[in-house]
Amino acid sequence: DTCAICRVQVMDACLRCQAENKQEDCVVVWGECNHSFHNCCMSLWVKQNNRCPLCQ
């Protein structure tokens, strides 16, 4: 699966965690819609949006 926000494989660290060298801290979360995201990506997304980027 791919993170619906950053488009990186969810089993890999997101771009932000890769840049900050925090790959082991990058975890996967699932929305109520069952789409998967990196927690970092979702945390930033929900500050500006309240819907899944794929379900909009």
Rank of each mutant, 00 (worst) to 15 (best):
H38I: 05
V8H: 11
Q18W: 02
K22T: 08
Q48F: 06
C26E: 14
M42C: 05
E32D: 11
N50D: 15
F37D: 03
R51I: 10
R7A: 14
I5C: 06
V29A: 11
C41G: 05
Q9V: 09
Q23A: 13
K47I: 05
N39V: 08
W30M: 15
K22Q: 11
E20M: 09
T2I: 13
G31N: 15
Q48T: 09
C33S: 01
V27K: 07
C3Q: 00
L44R: 02
V29S: 13
W30I: 13
V27C: 15
K47L: 04
Q23M: 09
Q56V: 12
E32R: 06
C3Y: 00
N50G: 09
M11E: 07
A4M: 10
E32L: 03
W45H: 08
W30P: 14
V8I: 12
Q23G: 11
R51W: 12
D12G: 14
H35Y: 02
C6A: 01
Q18Y: 06
A13H: 08
W45L: 11
K22G: 09
S36C: 09
P53S: 04
M11V: 13
V29E: 13
E24P: 08
W30D: 13
N21A: 09
V27L: 10
V29T: 15
M42S: 07
Q48R: 13
Q48E: 10
N39E: 11
V27I: 08
L44G: 10
V10P: 09
C52D: 00
C41D: 02
A13L: 06
K22A: 11
C33R: 00
C55H: 01
P53A: 07
C33G: 02
E32W: 05
C14I: 00
V46E: 14
N49E: 11
E32Y: 04
R7C: 11
C33I: 00
R51V: 09
Q9A: 14
M42W: 15
C40S: 02
E20N: 00
W45I: 06
N49C: 06
A13P: 09
D1R: 01
A19N: 14
Q9P: 15
H38T: 02
C33T: 00
N49R: 10
S36N: 14
M11R: 07
C6N: 02
K47D: 09
H35R: 04
A19E: 02
D12F: 01
F37M: 12
C26I: 02
Q23E: 05
W45T: 12
A4Y: 10
A19D: 05
P53F: 03
V28S: 08
C26R: 10
T2E: 02
V27D: 14
A19Q: 11
K22H: 06
C3R: 00
A19S: 08
Q9R: 13
N34V: 04
C40P: 01
C17P: 02
V28I: 07
E20T: 13
A4P: 14
V46I: 10
M11H: 14
W45P: 13
I5T: 05
R51Y: 15
V28C: 01
N49I: 04
A19I: 10
Q9H: 03
K47V: 05
V10R: 09
Q48G: 09
N49D: 13
D1E: 08
C52P: 03
Q18F: 03
R16W: 04
C6F: 00
D25W: 00
C55D: 05
V29L: 08
D1Q: 03
N34W: 02
C6Y: 00
N34E: 11
L54K: 14
R51E: 10
N21Y: 02
C14V: 00
N50K: 15
S43K: 14
L15S: 10
E24C: 04
V28D: 10
V29F: 07
N39I: 05
F37L: 12
N49K: 07
V8G: 15
A19G: 09
D12V: 09
D1F: 04
C33E: 02
M42E: 06
D1W: 00
H35P: 01
V10D: 07
V29K: 15
V29W: 08
R7Q: 12
E24R: 12
C52G: 03
C41N: 01
C14S: 04
C14T: 02
R7K: 13
H35E: 00
E24D: 12
H38E: 01
Q23L: 08
C55G: 02
W30N: 14
S43Y: 02
C14F: 00
N21D: 11
L44A: 14
S36F: 09
L15P: 07
R51Q: 07
V8N: 12
C3S: 01
P53H: 03
D1I: 03
A13N: 05
R51C: 12
C26N: 13
R16I: 08
L54I: 15
K22R: 07
L44S: 07
S36G: 12
N50P: 11
D12P: 05
V8R: 13
W45C: 13
K22C: 11
T2H: 12
C6V: 01
E24T: 10
A13R: 13
D25E: 13
R7N: 15
Q56R: 11
G31L: 08
F37G: 04
M11W: 05
C41W: 00
C26V: 09
L15M: 12
L54P: 09
C14P: 02
N39L: 10
V29M: 11
C40Y: 02
Q18D: 08
F37W: 06
S43R: 05
E24F: 04
C33H: 09
C55W: 03
C14K: 03
T2V: 00
D12I: 05
W30K: 15
V8A: 13
C3V: 01
M11I: 06
S43G: 14
C40G: 02
K47N: 09
V46P: 11
Q9S: 10
E24A: 08
C52Y: 00
V46Y: 06
L54N: 12
R51T: 11
C40L: 02
N39A: 06
K47E: 12
C55S: 02
K47W: 06
D25K: 15
C33M: 02
V8C: 09
E20I: 07
G31V: 01
T2L: 10
